[in-house]
Amino acid sequence: MRKGWLHFLLAFLLIGTGIVLMLENLGVIDKTLYISWGMILAAILMLTGLKLWWDRLAGHGGSWMFGSFFTIYGLLVLLGEIGVIIFTFSDVLKLWPLLFIYIGFGMFLGGSRKRFRVNVDTEDLSGSSFEKKHNNKKMHTVIGDHQYNAENWKVEPMQLWNAVGDYHFDFTKAFIPEKDTPISVKGWAGDIKMLMPENLDYRIEAFVKAGSINLLGKTSDGINRSTTFETPGYQDATRRLTIDIDLKAGDVRVDKV
């Protein structure tokens, strides 16, 4: 481990010990505290959450969402283990209201956060006409931001769904095959940004329930906004993108360089 992480661990243990001793002195804990596996696991959860928070603040990746969740969950379990409140590991479902908080913050905060994701390969999940027309690989994500901006990243048919989070596509850095590549991006809340190269043909159909669509400098905002754009050479192009965007709340921005 790095020296900074050891200092972080030591500081956490000192803080935890001080809190426990103070609770004993105040009579909140009426017996000598014994270390249990539950307390150890709860402490590990808190350490993991705080480390994710620290990495996020320091710009070394991390996750504000998972950091806060593990910290809160671990703290509640720890308080339950020492008898301050009634809370156990199995009470995790009681924290489901945090989802609304994360959705709210997700609508205001941006960044390059990465979250837990679930990849699902199925024949058909939603049954939309776009999905039936193309045989795409699907990726469903609970909460998270996604960056497609690495050098020479390969563009493939995709069906992406995200509850809360942002997408950033930089097609100027991408390897785009000589065919029609369909891309579907859908979600509840978040922002979608796309950067298109000058020599690429594409068609975009974008719908936002509440938010704005900025397509090559032309903005439409409000409720139930929809925009369709097609480059002049799209119909005859062999190398092209067919993009479908559907958001409940958020902003869509497409720029060209």
Rank of each mutant, 00 (worst) to 15 (best):
D201E: 03
T88C: 06
M107W: 03
K248N: 08
W37C: 07
R225A: 14
L216Y: 05
A210E: 15
V118S: 01
V254I: 13
S184R: 00
N152Y: 04
L76V: 06
H134L: 08
T227Q: 11
Q147S: 13
E24Y: 08
F100D: 04
P177N: 00
F169P: 13
F66H: 08
T48K: 01
S129Q: 13
F66E: 14
V185T: 02
N135W: 04
K209A: 15
G110D: 04
F100N: 03
D244W: 04
M107F: 03
T231K: 02
F8I: 15
I15G: 10
R225G: 12
K209Y: 15
G190A: 14
F108C: 03
D201K: 00
R117M: 12
G83K: 01
A43P: 07
E123I: 13
A249G: 06
K133I: 13
L95S: 00
F87E: 09
E156F: 05
A43S: 12
S212V: 13
L79K: 02
S126R: 11
W37S: 05
K209D: 15
K186I: 13
G222D: 04
L78Q: 06
K114H: 02
K186T: 14
I245W: 03
G59T: 15
W5H: 13
L23A: 10
A150T: 13
G111H: 04
L45T: 00
I85A: 07
S112W: 02
Q235W: 04
F116Y: 10
D121T: 08
I72H: 01
L26P: 11
V20C: 11
V77K: 04
K94Q: 09
R117Y: 06
G18K: 07
G165E: 09
L9T: 07
I204R: 00
H146M: 14
N149G: 14
T122H: 01
F89D: 10
Y234I: 14
L21F: 14
R240I: 13
D236L: 06
I223P: 02
G83C: 01
G165F: 05
D166I: 06
L247T: 09
N149E: 15
F12H: 07
T227G: 07
L26T: 14
M1N: 11
L33M: 10
M65I: 10
D244F: 03
T227R: 09
